[in-house]
Amino acid sequence: MAASGPSTPYVANKPKDIPTAEALRARIPGWGVDLDRKDRPSYPREIYDPEGTGAHWDYPDEQPDSEGRERSIEHGQLTPVFGTSVPLHGVSGSIRRYAYRYSEGRAAHWLLLLLGDRVEAWGAHASSFVTLRPDNPITETGVLSEGRRHGIASRLGKKRVDVNHQWIDPIVVAGPWVAASAGAVLAVRAITRRGRR
């Protein structure tokens, strides 16, 4: 075939310019040591070996204090072991518990969980102001690292495409607070005006 003629993939040849195994082995430490799939630890995908896991039970002991623990309705039972970080509580807990009425296949399940997340976050921020440790957006967002970790130099002239949306982050973080504050100011002004009449 002429050099100027059609090339892969318009003909059956393999692509050109792939180095030989010898050249690759000389350049790359360990090249090809896992070439045989039998040497790859996840091949085949499933290997039946219940003795090899370290488990010395057919079914684990069940963790106590499981009453009220939420679970996916796609589970046939509560799992014998579960996490106990931050149990459901308050309004967000009610929203989340309601979300668990829907299967993982339903958008309602996930969207209600996200709603619960936001409601809990707003409530936690608001209630933090009546504690000895109110939320501090400066320290908690870590934004001081912009100065300590070369925030400007890390971005300027770097052709980073994430710079075109990073400006949205402060709006995502502070936006709800600005909106809530503006709403509170407007409400107070309206009440004051009504009082003057």
Binding site: P60, E70, R71, S72, E74, T79, V81, E104
Partner: peptide, 8 residues
Amino acid sequence: HNVNPNAT
């Protein structure tokens, strides 16, 4: 399947 009650 025995450790995550929240999702399958």
